[in-house]
């Protein structure tokens, strides 16, 4: 596989993780909340503008990925720096899609700067998506108690990838 210019573990920050999402009743609130984490971490300039980019992407096809995973994402000039917000909900949050959706428990929201090359952008998403196929990785994410645990899970998960 290609070299990855951007590592997931480098773009997830302590302030963009919430391992115990509570009081969020639907997908809109969920995305709003995760965008707020990115905004407060200085990753996006405008919550509204980035939200629009995420909605545009959602309209292209579902980002609910089976196994209780959702990977909403958006590429926008409102993104100052590539970032990933990760939210975990043990009871799950209903994630509506054109295929009916599912209960999302592991949610990764990716913020991609407009000037980032398509290849780099796709590589980050692809790597995360491929990691999430592995049950061992998902279990590590469910078992993570701290930010460091999540980063360790991502770093170790890379050895699970079929092509690496």
């Amino acid at each position: 596989m290609a070299q990855y210019g951007l590592r997931i573990s480098e773009v997830i920050q302590p302030e963009t993780i919430d391992l115990d999402l509570r009081g969020i009743k639907d997908k809109d609130e969920l995305i709003h909340y995760l965008i707020g984490l990115l905004f407060r971490a200085g990753k996006v300039r405008s919550e509204e503008e980035f939200l629009q980019a995420v909605h545009e992407r959602e309209a292209m096809g579902p980002t609910y990925m089976e196994h209780s995973i959702a990977i909403p994402h958006g590429k926008s000039d409102a993104v100052l720096q590539a970032g990933v917000a990760f939210g975990r909900s043990f009871e799950g949050i209903w994630y509506e899609t054109e295929h009916g959706g599912g209960l999302a428990k592991l949610i990764f929201l990716l913020a991609i700067p407009d000037q980032m090359s398509p290849d780099e952008y796709v590589a980050v998403l692809a790597r995360l998506a491929r990691l999430l196929v592995h049950e061992e990785f998902r279990e590590e994410l469910y078992a993570s108690a701290t930010y460091e645990d999540v980063i360790d899970a991502v770093a170790q998960g890379e050895s699970l990838l079929e092509d690496s």
């Binding site: 992407r57 292209m60 096809g61 980002t63 990925m65 089976e66 990977i71 796709v122 998403l125 692809a126 998506a129 491929r130 999430l132 196929v133 592995h134 990838l161 079929e162 092509d163």
Partner: peptide, 20 residues
């Protein structure tokens, strides 16, 4: 897949894993 990103790669990874 339609989006051309996540599902495409996840499906590829899943098939490789299952075949192996």
């Amino acid at each position: 897949c339609a989006g051309g990103i996540a599902h495409t790669y996840m499906a590829a990874e899943a098939l490789q894993k299952a075949a192996r």
